[in-house]
């Protein structure tokens, strides 16, 4: 079965995940997931609702310890070190949570400024300047003094993105960036993601099932299946759409209903 895109990318590997098993108690969410993310690429984690995409993301950003397997970031084994080493590696991460996850007691500007105040020795005027820059990049400069409760969903996401890039991370994680956004806002966000990748040289990992946006931006990815509880296909969304023969992936990529009359391994 053709479910592995031939490698055409000669950039160095930044993240490598091998045989990762994720579980809550005795309930296994995904097992033996392996993939590599090249430096500077936009990597999509795809799959239907409830297949464990967000759980995989959680373990990659340090919120959930995997049952087994290794997760390498550069030369560091993320989960084998102590808390301190994980925090050190985590300083390279920027995360955009599904609904922004802005701290509600602070203004948008303060949200973006907080990581800089905590982790750099920059002076307040320089921080202010950088906060304006980051909010300017995501088109949210006008809302710098507003509170998250005064913003719409799309604005919260963009502000969350500004906060995610506040420390100029080289690895960005996006959890459902376009969920709940209108097509125009969503397309603008896609362009922004591409610009940030090119401008900041960041590596981006996106969890999403928003096909139009994935075809547009992602150049590599994996497809997780809730039935088999593992990754069933590797490749960019466009490659999976055009070449993958796995029936579930095919149905997903072509927005078709799965043919359940014939025996099917994904059950």
């Amino acid at each position: 079965m053709n479910n592995q895109m031939p490698s055409t990318n000669d950039r160095p590997t930044l993240i490598s995940v091998s045989d990762l098993t994720l579980a809550f108690g005795s309930r296994v969410i995904q097992h033996d997931v392996s993939f590599e993310v090249k430096r500077g690429s936009i990597f999509a984690v795809m799959g239907g609702s409830g297949c464990g995409k967000s759980t995989l993301l959680k373990s990659m950003i340090g919120l959930l310890r995997p049952r087994q397997g290794t997760y390498m970031v550069g030369k560091d084994n993320y989960w084998s070190g102590d808390d301190q080493s994980r925090i050190q590696i985590g300083r390279r991460f920027g995360v955009l949570f599904q609904s922004g996850a802005l701290w509600s007691s602070m203004t948008v500007g303060e949200n973006v400024a907080l990581p800089m105040q905590m982790f750099t020795s920059l002076t307040p005027p320089v921080i202010r300047q950088l906060v304006e820059l980051k909010l300017g990049l995501v088109g949210m400069l006008h809302a710098i003094d507003q509170y998250p409760s005064e913003l719409s969903g799309g604005m919260r996401k963009r502000a969350g993105l500004a906060r995610a890039i506040s420390l100029d991370p080289d690895i960005l994680f996006f959890d459902e960036p376009s969920a709940g956004l209108d097509p125009i806002t969503s397309a603008r966000l896609d362009d922004l993601i591409l610009n940030l990748r090119d401008g900041l040289g960041a590596t981006i990992i996106i969890v999403s099932h928003e096909l139009s946006s994935l075809f547009h931006i992602a150049d590599d990815g994996i497809f997780l299946d809730a039935g088999q509880k593992t990754a069933v296909a590797h490749g960019s969304p466009t490659w999976l759409r055009d070449h993958c023969t796995d029936p579930l992936v095919h149905a997903f990529m072509h927005r078709e209903q799965l043919d359940t009359s014939s025996p099917h391994e994904n059950g």
Binding site: E132, L133, G136, L137, G139, L141, L192, N195, L196, D198, G199, L200, G201
Partner: peptide, 13 residues
């Protein structure tokens, strides 16, 4: 890449 980022920024904040 610096160009691309500068283009995103408003000229008159």
């Amino acid at each position: 890449s610096a160009h691309k980022l500068l283009d995103l920024l408003p000229e008159n904040p």
